[in-house]
């Protein structure tokens, strides 16, 4: 029998594998990110938080991981765009009566939109914090990230943008976390229910944690 298959990463399943791997890699970053941010709850004028932020901004290992993170994010977003375009092309004539929610969850059908909202949010987010920190590091200046946080989250419209971003993230993960395992071929009678419930609680908890930060700062609860 001849082998007619093309390049692995150009195949549908190869692309899905990359989607799942990059998605889970981004999830691992979220865990680090939320832990650092939670340092604001020491409520010590940002001393602990700034120490953690300083470590992250100067540690060489973290610098390398950061490059990996950007590559992962770009791969994930580019692949998502290609898959979504292909999927739209696979049904040129739409149904007059759409299926709605009877056979699937709305957020599982909206990964492209949720991801795009996330991407837009990330642009704002990087401009708020990543760019100023980088500028300071390049100019060899000390940077008070905590002061930056307070400044940004004193404005209601930034708090609004962060809520939209964080809720998009929550729904993206609600489907994406368990979906990634399926894409990697990991589906098991015993373990899949555990992965699903872990993914569910993980998505909710990480959303609430991230959402709590702008809100508590806006309300002036963090000194």
């Amino acid at each position: 029998m001849s082998t007619t298959s093309g390049k692995f990463l150009q195949s549908s399943l190869g692309k899905k594998l990359l989607m799942g791997l990059t998605g889970l890699f981004l999830v691992s970053f979220l865990i680090v990110h939320v832990s650092i941010n939670a340092c604001i709850y020491f409520n010590d004028g940002g001393a602990t938080f700034n120490a953690a932020a300083h470590f992250m901004a100067h540690n060489p290992v973290i610098r390398v991981v950061e490059i990996g993170l950007f590559i992962g994010l770009i791969l994930h977003a580019v692949q998502a765009l290609m898959l979504t375009m292909q999927n739209n092309k696979a049904r040129p004539v739409k149904y007059a009566v759409p299926a709605g929610n009877v056979s699937s969850k709305w957020y599982s059908r909206s990964m492209g939109i949720l991801g795009s909202l996330l991407l837009l949010f990330l642009v704002v987010h990087l401009a708020n914090f990543w760019v100023p920190t980088k500028q300071a590091v390049f100019n060899d200046m000390e940077h008070d990230t905590f002061a930056g946080l307070k400044e940004v989250f004193s404005k209601w419209y930034f708090v609004g943008v962060y809520m939209v971003g964080v809720i998009s993230l929550g729904y993206h993960l609600l489907h994406g976390f368990q979906s990634a395992f399926q894409s990697l071929g990991l589906n098991h009678k015993k373990y899949t229910p555990m992965i699903k419930s872990f993914g569910f609680w993980f998505s909710i908890i990480i959303t609430l944690l991230f959402a709590s930060m702008p809100i508590t700062m806006f309300l002036g609860l963090i000194k």
């Binding site: 082998t3 298959s5 195949s11 549908s12 692309k15 999927n87 049904r91 368990q178």
Partner: peptide, 29 residues
């Protein structure tokens, strides 16, 4: 034919212009 089957059937599926699974689970329902 286990190895060639998986490769060739997936390749033909892609070539026919079917979309990519996003694990919504509607098919199973």
């Amino acid at each position: 034919e286990r190895t060639s089957r998986a490769k060739n059937m997936v390749a033909q599926m892609d070539e026919e212009g079917f979309g990519n699974c996003t694990n919504t689970g509607a098919c199973e329902v």
